[in-house]
């Protein structure tokens, strides 16, 4: 806080995501309780916690797929509120990868990647296709460009989903358990792509139980339970020296 007061300008510019005292309810059910979270640019954050503790809800609040009821969320200096213009800007700025891939099954891989650049960024098709090809090469499936999602394996589909998000040239990427729906032999190919992305300096928030991945790339691990952030630490200390009992219990169950 004191740092922020002395150098407000730089401190704010360095923050990609700022969440202050955020709460969310589903009806009477208090899903997220007083969430405070600052994410610096290029920072890579892993969120973990038992099933149903509100991890998905938290990251879905960040691009307004869910609406928070109290507190503030700032993304790249823009406040996330009812203002549709703000929501639009923020969604262009944030890419999201889902557990179930959610590729558009009626469009080819190439068309999946070009849809938003053409209709949202208003790019010429040629340019959109070039960008798409570039990212498809990066996720190592340029040869599948003309196939339909239904013709691909789960791992390939998830890599297409990552490429599709990257085509919008986002500053921040959100991942919601990107490997949970995959067969074990496909998990690595997706994680490899994510490690590459992390090494290139993408700001990432990733909900995952892949602790190996967390150890390799994370700057910080956040542990949540029943809608609260219980503990956060660098991966080294988090895994070797967990503070709270709940964290210890959780780690003992998954490791």
């Amino acid at each position: 806080m004191t740092q922020a007061m002395t150098q407000p300008a730089t401190a704010e510019q360095d923050l990609a995501i700022e969440v202050k005292g955020m709460h969310k309810w589903y009806g009477d059910f208090h899903v997220l309780k007083d969430i405070n979270l600052n994410v610096k640019r290029r920072e890579r954050i892993i969120i973990c916690g038992p099933s149903g503790c509100g991890k998905s809800t938290l990251i879905r609040c960040l691009n307004r797929l869910e609406v928070h009821q109290r507190g503030e969320i700032w993304i790249d200096g823009i406040e996330l509120n009812d203002d549709l213009k703000h929501i639009e800007k923020i969604r262009r700025d944030i890419g999201m990868v889902f557990q179930q891939f959610n590729l558009f099954p009626h469009l080819t891989v190439m068309e999946n990647c070009c849809l938003a650049p053409i209709w949202v960024l208003k790019k010429p098709r040629r340019e959109a296709e070039e960008t798409a090809m570039h990212y498809l090469e990066r996720v190592k499936i340029p040869d599948q460009a003309d196939k339909y999602p239904g013709q691909l394996s789960g791992g390939q589909q998830q890599r297409v989903a990552i490429a599709r998000s990257l085509c919008m040239n986002p500053n921040i990427m959100l991942f919601d358990e990107p490997t949970s729906a995959l067969d074990p032999e496909m998990i690595k190919e997706v994680l490899d792509v994510m490690v590459d992305l992390a090494n290139e300096g993408m700001t990432m928030l990733c909900v995952t139980h892949e602790m190996g991945f967390a150890k390799t790339v994370a700057d910080r691990v956040i542990f949540m339970d029943s809608g609260e952030i219980i503990e956060e630490n660098d991966p080294e200390s988090f895994f070797s020296n967990p503070q709270s009992d709940r964290t210890k219990l959780f780690l003992s169950q998954i490791l």
């Binding site: 691009n63 797929l65 639009e88 969604r91 262009r92 944030i94 890419g95 999201m96 889902f98 179930q100 959610n102 590729l103 558009f104 849809l115 938003a116 209709w119 949202v120 989903a161 599709r164 998000s165 919008m168």
Partner: peptide, 19 residues
């Protein structure tokens, strides 16, 4: 999930419905 994926990409509701 289709609506959500499209919304997350920044498409507006009308375009999501149509495309």
């Amino acid at each position: 999930g289709q609506t959500e994926a499209a919304a997350a990409l920044g498409l507006r509701p009308g375009k999501i419905l149509r495309l």
